[in-house]
């Protein structure tokens, strides 16, 4: 494996130079053991083409910066080993997000807007008084919140979603999962009605067509199908007037 010659076909386009139409550029590289797309792209930039744009931050699959379309699938480039791919590797930037250049896309602006739209913070009337002992929480609940909070906002679920590709306002799995994170949090005092305002429409829970490319492409392996169905059922129950038992706030 180690002496394979890899051929990278990489999407090139600089939005600041619209006169140059998008094109695919080919680079050749000798494969090394344990090579990831992160290693390969940096080698290409340092040795062959210093103008090539792409994003990496943690290079350990925890920050979500480096998602791109690798041979058709949205994945994290940093944890994609070249030996799991054929010798010809095609790289595209993530769709849906605004292109910064070549493989770099602006996920930051998109996700900030998502946070604002879903009001992704704990809505509480309590003013923190750090001098008093913290409120108790069941460890199982804490784990449940963490399960949804593990999303790293890489955008793979959005890029893989047919609906998100054609409907600008659709929150996608990342957005609906985010709402689920706050729904299960007993510290958030929002009522089901308030959540309905956020996700009770085709922009949210009812916009999902169930194609599950999100579920299949999530690099964190979040249970997105379950989260999406959970929010959809909750919202339907509220919309049909089913009164939930008041949540117990510990």
């Amino acid at each position: 494996m180690a002496d394979r010659q890899l051929t990278f076909e990489i999407f090139r386009y600089n939005p600041l130079k619209p006169e140059v139409a998008p094109y695919m550029q080919t680079y050749k590289l000798a494969e090394t053991t344990g090579m990831t797309i992160f290693v390969a792209l940096n080698m290409i930039r340092e040795e062959q083409d210093p103008s090539l744009m792409f994003d990496f931050v943690c290079r350990a699959a925890i920050c979500g910066s480096c998602a791109m379309v690798i041979n058709g699938r949205p994945r994290l480039a940093c944890k994609t080993l070249t030996n799991t791919l054929p010798a010809k590797i095609k790289l595209f930037p993530l769709p849906v997000f605004k292109l910064v250049g070549d493989l770099a896309v602006d996920t930051g602006t998109w996700f900030r807007y998502l946070s604002e739209k879903t009001e992704s913070w704990v809505h509480t009337s309590k003013v923190p008084d750090p001098k008093v002992q913290e409120e108790r929480m069941d460890n199982a609940v804490a784990n449940q919140i963490y399960e949804a909070e593990r999303c790293i906002e890489c955008g793979c679920c959005i890029a893989g979603c047919a609906t998100a590709n054609i409907r600008d306002e659709f929150l996608g799995a990342a957005g609906i999962n985010r709402v689920a994170r706050f729904m299960v949090d007993p510290r958030d005092e929002r009522s089901p009605g308030e959540y309905f305002e956020i996700v009770g429409s085709e922009e949210g829970a009812f916009g999902c067509m169930g194609l599950m490319a999100c579920d299949d492409n999530c690099p964190m392996e979040l249970p997105l199908q379950m989260q999406l169905a959970f929010v959809r059922r909750k919202m339907a129950a509220y919309g049909l007037g089913y009164k939930e038992k008041k949540r117990i706030k510990p």
């Binding site: 994003d55 931050v57 943690c58 350990a60 925890i62 920050c63 979500g64 910066s65 996920t107 930051g108 996700f111 900030r112 790293i152 906002e153």
Partner: peptide, 10 residues
């Protein structure tokens, strides 16, 4: 980088 990509998250 976007704040949530900061190295603090690591």
């Amino acid at each position: 980088v976007p704040p949530r990509r900061s190295h603090s998250t690591a």
